[in-house]
Simulated assay, not measured.
Amino acid sequence: MNLWLRLLRVRLAAQRGARISLWDTVATRFRVVPTDLDTVGHMNNGRYLTLLDLGRLDLMVRSGFWQRCRDRGWFPVVAGQTITYWKNLTLAQSFDVHTRVAGGDERWVYLEQTFRRGDVVHAHALIRACFVERGHGRVPTADLDAELGGFPDHVSVPDWVRSWTTHSAAKTV
């Protein structure tokens, strides 16, 4: 149940929060609760991925892009992700999930997300996503670029991300 409550809290806070640009970094505040813990007493690795979803929702709602997508019948889909864990998060610790658009290419939008307590990074994730239109499949890159007004110059995909995308592509057997 706490995930539904967190979803509601993030959604309401984002709707009431300060408006930002889609190209800004948003920090979404959380606290480790008992249902986040694994058998050794720190936050379960799967819970990190769930909270990343909420961080992305916060960015999209606060920037207004969520409503623009809904108006067009688009919704985001995670196609790949990689996460590295550095430090444990334990019961009752508060932390922020920092979310930013890292870039885009001819097929994907990339987001970078970090779990932080102050200046200390506890985990870092890279997400590869696309947008899908109900009943029509994947949204063409040209349509996404037109809706976004293009990606700003400071938002570019690093070479290592392109390499990760190439090497993590689904292979047929």
Rank of each mutant, 00 (worst) to 15 (best):
W4I: 15
L5D: 15
R9G: 08
R11Q: 07
L12Y: 04
A13V: 06
A14P: 09
A18D: 10
R19N: 08
I20A: 09
D24W: 03
A27N: 13
T28M: 02
T28F: 01
R31F: 03
V32Q: 05
V32T: 12
D36E: 06
D36P: 03
M43A: 11
N45S: 13
Y48E: 03
L49E: 02
T50F: 01
L51G: 02
G55I: 06
L57P: 13
L57T: 15
D58P: 12
Q67R: 15
R70H: 04
R72I: 10
G73I: 10
F75S: 14
A79K: 07
A79H: 05
A79G: 15
A79S: 14
G80R: 03
Q81G: 15
T82P: 03
T82S: 11
T84I: 10
K87I: 09
N88L: 05
L89K: 03
L91A: 07
A92L: 10
S94T: 15
F95S: 06
F95N: 11
D96H: 03
D96Q: 09
H98R: 07
R100T: 13
R100I: 02
V101G: 14
A102P: 06
G103V: 04
G103W: 00
G104S: 07
G104V: 02
R107N: 15
Y110I: 08
L111G: 08
E112I: 05
T114E: 06
D119A: 07
V120K: 04
V120I: 14
H124V: 13
A125M: 01
A125R: 02
A129N: 11
R138A: 11
A142L: 11
D143G: 05
L144W: 04
E147D: 13
G149C: 04
G149K: 03
P152A: 12
P152G: 12
P152S: 12
S156K: 05
V157E: 02
V157T: 12
D159A: 14
D159N: 08
W160V: 14
V161M: 07
W164D: 15
T165R: 08
T166R: 12
H167N: 15
A169W: 00
K171C: 02
V173F: 00
